[in-house]
């Protein structure tokens, strides 16, 4: 019997044939798995995460008031300089924020330098800045020597060991500008900068290790891609089987 025009209707949600029904069920299943695996996991990450500070942030909180007071303590200034270096070492820093951090580092070193040597300290920074501007390449011998000397001389002031990676960054981040005081910008922005760079969203999913990865990273970067291929494979195998069963040719 011929179909009437009203019979020609296709709707994913209202399948009329056995093949369409089977296909709809399979698609709903696969898309549900796909959706939950991608978005469900990220939502779970979001729900259970807790803002977790790095040790450097806790140190910063302890020394901030003292380091910016009229008569800062030696230990506080050292830690203040080191926490600034901890953020500067992250490299990917907003240029404006870098200025404030450089100011904090240089200020803490200046304050830690004995009064009789302060002028000499500023001179040394200026000399190094001049060398940095003049060199064509960082393999310039004069630059390498000056950098090493500055690092060797200033690291002990901050109580930084030679094996601390921050000691290598130190000479590169010194700034002779506003070295004798913390600028208003630095005073205002440093707590915000520290919070921004030193507090992270963590949970057991980020702290658990799997094959060397943080688990959440492995799940998203490696596992999800495997899952996508498997979902596609399942769909094709099932469709081929269904087509074979219902004698459907392409």
């Amino acid at each position: 019997m011929d179909k009437s025009p009203n019979d020609y209707h296709i709707s994913f949600f209202k399948p009329t044939t056995a093949q369409a029904k089977a296909n709809r069920n399979m698609v709903v299943w696969l898309i549900s798995i796909w959706f939950i695996a991608i978005f469900g996991f990220q939502i779970l990450l979001r729900l259970i995460e807790k803002p977790t500070p790095e040790p450097a942030y806790l140190t910063f909180q302890t020394v901030w008031q003292n380091a910016t007071s009229e008569s800062p303590g030696i230990f506080e200034l050292q830690e203040f300089g080191k926490t600034s270096l901890s953020v500067l070492g992250k490299i990917a820093i907003d240029p404006k924020e870098r200025i404030a951090l450089d100011n904090a580092l240089s200020y803490s070193l200046y304050q830690l330098t004995p009064d009789s040597l302060k002028a000499d300290f500023v001179l040394k920074i200026r000399d190094f800045e001049k060398i940095k501007l003049e060199i064509q390449s960082i393999s310039d011998p004069e630059y390498i020597v000056a950098k090493k000397l500055l690092s060797a001389e200033l690291s002990p002031i901050l109580n930084l060991s030679d094996l601390d990676v921050r000691s290598k960054i130190l000479p590169l981040e010194l700034s002779s500008e506003n070295v004798n005081n913390l600028t208003d910008l630095s005073l205002k922005s440093l707590p915000v900068i520290m919070e921004k760079y030193l507090i992270h969203n963590q949970s057991f999913l980020t702290d658990t290790k799997f094959l060397g990865f943080p688990f959440h990273y492995f799940y998203t970067a490696v596992f999800l891609l495997i899952l996508f291929i498997v979902l596609c494979l399942i769909y094709n195998l099932k469709t081929d089987k269904l087509n074979g069963k219902l004698n459907i040719a392409d």
Binding site: S86, G89, V165, K168, I199, Q202
Partner: peptide
Amino acid sequence: GNGYAIVPVPEYAMPWDTA
């Protein structure tokens, strides 16, 4: 010539990090 060293950068892997 820089050593294969780095300060901790958890923001590299932690989800939707403020940094």
